[in-house]
């Protein structure tokens, strides 16, 4: 069986942290945007903007990124 992360009431899972993009690695291809179910990111030409309010830390973008430019960093909760 696959263990799913516990869901908080607001749909976010229990992880704390935030998505960051390494601008030096990013090739602004938008693969991360294609897989985001929460409309939490947008490509502004060569810049990926992330809406932290909408982001659920589901990591779909982390996995889809061809350049491995995206990671979740820990933040104080």
């Amino acid at each position: 069986m696959i263990a799913l992360p516990e869901q908080k009431k607001d749909g976010k899972n229990n992880e704390t942290g935030k998505i960051v993009i390494d601008r030096y690695k990013c090739a602004y291809c938008a693969a991360c945007i294609a897989v985001c179910k929460y409309d939490a990111n947008v490509l502004i030409e060569t810049f990926v903007y992330i809406d932290e309010e909408k982001c659920t830390l589901c990591k779909a973008c982390v996995r889809a990124c061809p350049m491995q430019a995206i990671e979740i960093i820990e933040t104080e909760s």
């Binding site: 945007i33 294609a34 490509l43």
Partner: peptide, 19 residues
Amino acid sequence: DGVESRVGKWAGIDTTVKI
């Protein structure tokens, strides 16, 4: 508007790409 299409989402067309 490509793989990251917004227009489809705005129009309510199901273009979800799973991982």
